[in-house]
């Protein structure tokens, strides 16, 4: 109760405005300025604003730390990207080599001799069919004779059997020409 009375007593007093000052000095530049009755004392404005002493070591360490963080952010990312790129590249190379190896294996396993044989057989078949057709039509009889003789020569250098008399005659004439040419060359 005594405390309450004390508070009331205090409230009853007029509270003085702590910023309201009156200066009688003529040197105050804000003397005629209207601050709604409140003027700041010039000298008091910068009171308590003593410049702090900066710790240089702390500044340097902060700077170093900042730089390191910055460096980490700027360098680490590209390195990660670089590693990822390398990893992807290696995977691609592996895939490429794998596919190339398969193709090389296909090429190596391919029977070139068989391919050539099949091709030659196909060509021979086509020519034989053509000659057969010509024989039927009677147009390419001479060609047929020559071809038969050529085939006989290529295969076993033997005169084929089953030819017509005219074909044998042609072959004989050609043989005579060859003999005559060889005699001339020898001479």
């Amino acid at each position: 109760m005594a405390n309450i009375n004390k508070v009331e007593l205090n409230l009853g007093h007029k509270i003085a405005n702590p910023f309201k000052t009156t200066r009688k000095s003529d040197t105050n530049p804000f003397k005629y300025s209207n601050f709604e009755g409140n003027t700041l004392q010039f000298a008091d404005v910068f009171e308590g604003f003593e410049p702090k002493k900066i710790n240089k070591l702390k500044m340097i360490s902060s700077s170093v730390m900042g730089s390191m963080i910055k460096l980490r952010n700027s360098i680490t990312e590209p390195i990660i990207n670089f590693v990822n790129r390398i990893k992807d590249g290696v995977s691609n190379i592996k895939e490429t080599i794998g596919s190339k190896t398969e193709k090389i294996n296909e090429i190596l396993n391919y029977d070139i001799g068989k391919y050539l044989s099949d091709s030659i057989t196909g060509i021979g078949k086509t020519i034989s069919e053509k000659i057969h057709f010509d024989n039927i039509t009677g147009i390419g009889k001479d060609l047929s004779t020559k071809w038969t003789a050529l085939v006989g020569k290529v295969h076993n250098d033997k005169i084929p059997s089953g030819l017509s008399v005219a074909e044998y005659r042609d072959l004989w004439i050609k043989e005579n020409e060859l003999i005559a040419n060889s005699v001339k060359e020898a001479a």
């Binding site: 250098d157 030819l163 044998y168 072959l171 043989e175 003999i179």
Partner: peptide, 9 residues
């Protein structure tokens, strides 16, 4: 070859 042709004929 000539001998073979003669034989064939």
């Amino acid at each position: 070859n000539v001998a073979e042709i003669i034989d064939a004929l």
